[in-house]
Amino acid sequence: MTTAGHDLKPVLVFDSGIGGLTVLREARVLMPERGFIYIADDAGFPYGGWEEQPLRERIVRLFGDLLERYDPEAVVVACNTAFTLAGTDLRHAFPDMRFIGTVPAIKPAAERTRSGLVSVLATPGTVKRAYTRDLIQSFASKCHVRLVGSENLARMAEAYIRGEAIPDEAVLAEISPCFVEKEGEKTDIVVLACTHYPFLANVFRRLAPWPVDWLDPAEAIARQARRLVPLVDGAEHPEGFDFAVFTSGKPDFSTRRLMQGFGLTMS
């Protein structure tokens, strides 16, 4: 039996800005029969500098509106800061919705490292979150884990993917603390704990003082979404979805062009 595309609910992908596009790209490959709605809370960007309670309230309030308006099959919260802070609140507030979260990939990093030296490159909010420290305690207690909170990289990544030039010195200043030498060993894995950062991965590789594995969680998040969202045999890709919504209502020209490059229209 063939299911008409418009009968399939969309998958909503949420981020503070455009970093979640790295996750959307992978999700589309694994979920070709689904339509996607991309939500960028650019009016609140960047999340890293917010106080916890106001940001938690903002995210839950936003989702109250988004879920009612779009009625998605599932939500991918493609933002470490948002999910480590408000993931529990979202699941409590909306118990009937499937939420696929984004958390720092500390467990796979601990499993892969050979030197035992792992760095987590994140926003200041993710670094200070108890959730992040609990992950380290649970899965990486035998590793030396350095938490590096960058104030500026999310903005830099957004500018870079829009085509702006970013000075090497500025990027290097943000990533240098990730590289640790201890007792003859060197950091061999850096966890990219912000979905914006993979946009700069090639720059990171070029500037790094030695080769490391830059761990991008996007594919793992997409695999988890595929596990939680049922595959409907014979389903056709629906029309009317695959659009982006910016909470400011004022995305600039370069942002609109970028969205088009990802196959998204602007709502």
Rank of each mutant, 00 (worst) to 15 (best):
P108C: 04
I18A: 05
F94W: 15
M31Y: 11
A86Y: 02
G249H: 03
S254Y: 05
E51S: 09
F36V: 10
L55P: 01
W214C: 07
F83S: 01
L55S: 04
S115M: 10
A154P: 01
E174R: 06
D65N: 09
I175Y: 00
A40N: 02
V212H: 02
V191F: 02
S176V: 05
I161K: 08
T2A: 15
R91N: 06
R257G: 01
A27Q: 03
E73F: 13
P72N: 10
G163Y: 10
T132A: 02
D168F: 07
E51F: 03
N80Q: 08
Q53F: 07
L90K: 07
G184D: 08
H237G: 11
T132V: 02
S138D: 08
H144S: 02
Y38H: 14
V203N: 03
D252E: 12
H237N: 12
A225H: 10
M31A: 14
T132E: 00
G163P: 12
A74H: 03
R28K: 06
M266C: 13
P217V: 03
F139W: 12
R133Y: 00
A225F: 11
P124H: 07
F204N: 09
R34Q: 15
A208Y: 10
V11Y: 14
A218E: 09
R162N: 08
G240P: 06
A4T: 12
T187N: 11
L200S: 07
L228R: 07
I100L: 13
R28T: 01
P104H: 00
L24I: 10
M97P: 02
F253W: 12
G249E: 02
N152F: 06
S150K: 00
F243W: 07
E57A: 04
P46G: 12
G87Y: 01
G234P: 01
A74T: 03
A244Q: 13
E68M: 11
G5V: 14
L24E: 05
F199H: 05
A159M: 04
R114D: 14
N80F: 02
D65L: 09
G5H: 14
Q260L: 11
D89Q: 08
F243L: 06
P95N: 11
A86T: 07
R129K: 12
D71V: 14
A86H: 04
A235E: 11
C178K: 03
P198K: 04
V180W: 04
V148D: 01
H6Q: 15
F94S: 15
M156E: 03
N80E: 04
A130T: 12
A43C: 10
V29D: 04
E164R: 11
G249W: 01
A110N: 02
L67C: 09
T126N: 11
Q260T: 09
F45E: 03
R61I: 03
R205K: 13
L62A: 14
I39N: 05
L117R: 12
V245Y: 03
A220L: 02
G263H: 09
D134G: 11
G263V: 09
V11C: 15
A173K: 13
R155P: 00
N152M: 05
L200A: 08
F63K: 12
R223A: 08
A86L: 05
G5P: 14
V212M: 02
L192M: 11
R61N: 07
D15Q: 00
R206Y: 03
G17K: 01
R227K: 15
E57H: 05
H237A: 15
R114F: 13
P32G: 08
